[in-house]
Each structure stands twice: as C-alpha cells, then as structure tokens.
Amino acid sequence: MHDCRKIEEGLVDLIFGELEQNERSRLLAEVESCTGCLSEYRAMSGTLVVFDQAAEASLPDESFWPEHHEALRLRLERLAGGAQVERKAPFWKRIFAMRLPVPVPIAALAVMAFLVVSIFALRPSGVETAPKVTAQEPHVAPAPTIIEVPVIQEKLVTRVVYREKRLAGRTEARRVESSPQQNELQLNAPNSAKDSGEDRLFTQASLAGFQPPDEMRIRLIKRNNSDEN
C-alpha cells in the first residue's frame, strides 16, 4: 500500500545517498509510481542542484588562493615564533604563567583553607612566648658604652711647686695628702734648688728631667687630729 507521508520521510535518505542499494532501488520504484512523490523528490533534488550551482559560482577565482595561502603561512610563522619564545621562557616565568583547570568552588575552598591556616600560624601564643621572654632577659643587659673622645690638641701643663723650707716637715705631709704628683715632683727636685736660698721662705723647684710616670700610685696617709695638736 503506497503511503505518501512515509515515502516523504525516506526522501531525505534517498537524496543524500544514505540507503543501501536494494533499499534505494525499492524506494525509487515506489516514488516513480506516484506523481506527487516523484514531483516532491525532484523538487528536493533540484534544490540541492541549485545550491551546488550557487556554491560553485560563489567561490573566489584562482588569483585568490596564493594570497590566502601566504597570509596563512605568515600567521603560522608568527604563531610558531611565539611558541618558540614560550618554550625558552625561564622556569620561574612558566611557574607564574601556569594555569590549572580547577573548578571555582574547589579553588575558593582551597583559598579559604590557606587563609585559615595562615591566620592560626601567625597568631601569637602566650604559652609559648612567656619562656622566651625570661630566657632572653639576661641577654638584654646593657652593654658598656665606650666613648672615645678625640684629643684635638695636646696641652702641656707646667706647674710651679713651692716648698716650704722651714716648715718642710709639716707642709710635706699636707702636700702629699693633697697632690701625690706634686710630691713626686718634689722628690725629684735637684738638691741645688734646696740649698740655694736658705733665708728664703719658699724656693722654686725645677721640673727639669721630670718624666711622667706610666702608672700612678696614690698613697693615702691618714692624719689624726692629735698630730696637729
């Protein structure tokens, strides 16, 4: 029994060559037996023929293809050049340029976990820091400061020492008590100065030959009030 609707469904397979040889022959025979189906079949085939004619006519002429190929070749060379540069990029650049296809929720969770761990790791803990403070205390003791004062100009100090000749014993003791250096000077004074002016109360001592000592010894002589009396 011929069914035009059923034949129409098979016309697409027929015009696009999707049927086996036996099936194709059977369907063609049935199409030819019906004027309506044959007309429909030819209209569909005709549409494809018109399309093919237009498709061929729309193609560019032969002069187009060398230019097209050259443009393609240039783009390929540019692409290859870029890829070569990318291959030569240093390791750290490739690390920073690296992309990992990670779903957004997983990436968000990873970032949040990292932040939480960072916060806990950086948070100061009282239990741990207390011993550290006590341990560090002895080391915090202030270091002695040494101040170096440059000597701009040497100063020569001369001092005139007067000796009380008559009251030598008593005055000597006071002088030693007040200034040991003066005592040294006196001890080193030449004898000529001692003997030159007997009638004079004080005699000028000479500092010739005086050598300042490298180390100074201070002798403290305690005096009792009973001695003066």
Binding site: V12, L38, R42, M44, S45, G46, T47, V49
Partner: peptide, 27 residues
C-alpha cells in the same frame, strides 16, 4: 536536514517542478 531542505525550497521558491523541467533533479 529535512527542515533545511524545506526552508531552502521555500526561500528559493522551488515548487514541485513540471516533469519536463526537472530532468537533472532525479539522481
């Protein structure tokens, strides 16, 4: 494909052709 052929036919104005004009369509 069926709908495409139908649309192309409609747009191109190809109605079922008289048999004498449709010689190259049957293939």
């Amino acid at each position: 494909l069926f709908r495409t052929i139908a649309k192309l036919r409609q747009q191109l104005g190809i109605t079922p052709a008289p048999l004498e004009y449709a010689q190259c369509g049957a293939g």
